[in-house]
Design a binder for these strands. Structure first.
Length: 469
RNA sequence: GCUCCCUUCGUCUAGCGGUUAGGACGCGGCCCUCUCAAGGCUGAAACGCGGGUUCGAUUCCCGCAGGGAGCGCCA
């Protein structure tokens, strides 16, 4: 049997980080077994579904490289099929028209709650004699009232439900549109989904869906219900925990593989291994090893992982997203050194591409933003002479390379009777405007000769030693 | 309220009857060092509680407590 899984988001908002983890595990399962991965857009709620949300979902999945083999299917384009299946159930006596009004249902629910009972439909229309004038009926499914339904969950193990706990759920609304449960069942059946991997908020819905699947004559899929991802404080993941929209992670300068790697370790592990390539994930992932308990999202660990990926990535391949970061930070990527060189110099001291863009602004223009406190501390009269000397020596340096720059700096420091650091830090402040940057020779190499000399000269006036030397 | 699920360091997790309970993030210390990092070494830090079963329970069973989900003409 060929494995076929699916990801079936509803386009009522952006692609949520929890949804991505569900998609990832479903995708991994299909890929691991050499199966198929289907994308289906569950847009039966026409009020809340938007094209913008569909685009965001497609965008997010594409960015992460979670490719699908079939779809995207849209439920709104399959209404005829749902109607056909609904008619069949009605004809076969497996469904019936219910004329209870929303108001009646609501009142009964309130009564049941007041009595301490589980609110559910009492099935009274199963035996109603005829239509009620003026009331557009819904179609309800005839759910067994006795016996137990067993879900053999790939993640949870065996879970039993008393059928008496279930009620006759609505298949088709009074306006003729299918409900979520009905759409899911018909779609999974028609599309030949073999493994339903989804969030554990659906575990309780599974037995009722299983009954519908049997009634429709489809094969039962295997189920795997994944635990939730919570915010850092254990509450439901929401905006206040930081980004929940995947695309925000792209905007913040995270790498897709790092995000996937972080997510795959939420609820799953392979011994002590922390870093997995895409191929390793596919090869090693096993749904049976997935934890049943919810986990919390830890942005710090994501940042750490992202840096690991930054450090081992091919810098040239990061040029495009890095250029985007520079633009967002207000810099012109063309006004500085090649992206790959900057990334290489900075990736040991930054967790994201955005961090790099925010640290390396001095490379992208002629002006530096001088940190006054740093200038007061490091650009002192005592180093004025050495800085002036350095400017002269660097001006005549044959080749502008870090090696040559380093030699000159060592030589100038020695001549001035200074330790390398006593010269290096003032130079750093002069050239970058701050106290933090890559190794000073690398920094100067990136800044370039012209700007370095101009900035050293400008710094001399701050040291109060005039032209010095 | 009813039904279902979950419970190892702060967090992510390894463990699948006998371990000094391991790793990772974060946090502290030391080393390295021109700054910041990165890296290396190192320290503190966990089996929710109560009953069983067993020679022996973190591990199996049952309660309890705590957390979560579901109970819509939402998905």
């Amino acid at each position: 049997m060929t494995v076929k899984t699916r990801f079936a988001p509803s386009p009522t908002g952006f692609l949520h980080i929890g949804g991505v983890r569900t998609a990832l595990f479903s995708w991994l399962y299909a890929r691991h077994h050499g199966g198929q991965f289907v994308l289906r857009i569950e847009d039966t709620d026409r009020e809340r579904s938007t094209q913008a949300a569909v685009d965001a979902i497609l965008d997010g999945l594409a960015w992460l490289g979670l490719d699908h083999d079939e779809g995207p299917y849209y439920q709104t384009r399959r209404f005829d099929r749902y109607a056909e299946q609904a008619d069949r159930l009605l004809r076969e006596g497996k469904a019936y028209r219910c004329y209870c009004t929303r108001e009646e249902l609501e009142a009964r629910r309130a009564e049941q709650m007041a009595r301490g009972e589980k609110p559910r439909y009492d099935g009274r229309c199963r035996h109603r004699a005829g239509p009620v004038p003026g009331v557009a009926p819904v179609l309800r499914f005839v759910t067994p009232t006795e016996g137990v339904t067993v879900v053999d969950d790939l993640v949870r193990g065996r879970v039993e439900f008393q059928n008496a706990e279930l009620d006759d759920l609505i298949l088709v609304r009074s306006d003729g549109t299918p409900t979520f449960h009905f759409g899911v069942v018909v779609d999974d059946g028609d599309m030949g989904i073999t493994h339903v991997i989804r969030g554990d908020d659906h575990l309780n819905n599974t037995p009722r869906q299983m009954h519908m699947i049997r009634a429709l004559g489809y094969h039962l899929p295997a189920y795997g219900h994944l635990p939730m991802i919570l915010g850092s404080d254990g509450a439901k993941l929401s905006k206040r925990h930081g980004a929940v929209n995947v695309l925000e992670y792209r905007e913040e300068g995270f790498l897709p593989d790092a995000l996937l790697n972080y997510l795959v370790r939420l609820g799953w592990a392979h011994g002590d291994q922390e870093i997995f390539t895409r191929e390793e994930m596919i090869r090693l992932f096993d749904i049976a090893g997935v934890n049943a308990s919810a986990s919390r999202f830890d942005g710090e660990k994501l940042r750490w992982l992202n840096q690991q990926y930054l450090k081992s990535a091919d810098p040239a391949g990061l040029a495009a997203p890095f250029a985007e970061q520079l633009k967002h930070a207000g810099f012109d990527p063309g006004a500085g050194p090649p992206a790959a060189a900057v990334i290489e110099a900075y990736r040991e001291r930054a967790a994201t591409l955005r961090d790099i863009a925010h640290s390396a602004g001095y490379l992208y223009g002629d002006r530096v933003q001088m940190d006054d406190a740093a200038a007061r501390k490091h650009l002192t009269t005592a180093v004025g002479g050495a800085l002036a000397q350095l400017a002269v020596r660097l001006g005549s340096l044959a080749e502008w390379t870090r090696g040559g720059i380093h030699e000159v700096m060592t030589s100038v420091a020695t001549d001035a009777g200074l330790g390398f650091g006593k010269l290096g830090q003032p130079v750093r402040v002069a050239v970058t405007g701050g106290t933090v940057s890559p190794p000073i020779d690398v920094t100067l190499e990136l800044v370039g000769r012209k700007r370095t000399l101009a900035r050293l000269t400008a710094a001399l006036s701050l040291t109060g030693s005039g032209t010095g030397a």
